[in-house]
């Protein structure tokens, strides 16, 4: 007997939650305890009175599992609203990455040229290294990081995805 794997879909969920201690552990731990996947997770306080945070989670799973994930998130007391951006329609997703590259000669010039093409900004420079700041879709960042590997990538820090629905309405 072998363990079967199922086909997965990627979904971006956004959760409005109470900004109180333990909420992140509750949400993230629920994913672990029920065997759901987290590809990335971001959280920050977003309201004027610091009462509400937005958690953006990128997850994957077969459609019935995604539906369960949403229902299980909604079941948590500090979670007020869950939106599946992937399901809800047009939306934007952005991620920020800091990418450190070291090298000299042609590689250093090429890194700078590629950064320019990808509209990455230099936020730190030494004679041997750069740190680039790049924002964009996760795919764009993936591609940029792959290119940087060729020209002396040292390390990467990524924020994970933040997302909102397009248009005037609340996500």
């Amino acid at each position: 007997m072998h363990i079967k794997q199922e086909q997965s879909e990627r979904h971006v969920l956004t959760l409005m939650v109470d900004n109180e201690s333990g909420t992140l552990a509750r949400v993230a731990g629920m994913f672990t305890s029920r065997g759901y996947n987290i590809d990335s997770l971001t959280v920050a306080d977003i309201s004027e009175d610091h009462a509400v945070s937005r958690i953006t989670i990128v997850t994957n799973g077969p459609p019935p599992v995604i539906d369960q994930i949403i229902a299980q998130c909604e079941r948590l007391v500090p979670v007020h609203k869950v939106t599946d951006l992937t399901e809800a329609g047009p939306h934007v997703e952005r991620e920020l990455a800091l990418v450190k590259v070291a090298g000299d000669g042609d590689k250093r010039v090429e890194a700078m040229r590629l950064a320019d093409i990808y509209r990455a900004r230099v936020i730190d420079a030494t004679v041997r290294s750069f740190i680039f700041e790049i924002t964009g879709s996760p795919e764009k960042i993936d591609t940029f990081v792959a290119l940087m590997r060729e020209v002396g990538l040292v390390e990467v820090a990524r924020t994970g995805v933040a997302g909102l629905m397009r248009g005037a309405e609340l996500s």
């Binding site: 019935p64 539906d67 369960q68 229902a71 299980q72 909604e74 079941r75």
Partner: peptide, 11 residues
């Protein structure tokens, strides 16, 4: 009464 019980194992 619990939405997460619906469609959990049986559609």
């Amino acid at each position: 009464i619990d939405r997460s019980s619906i469609n959990k194992t049986v559609a």
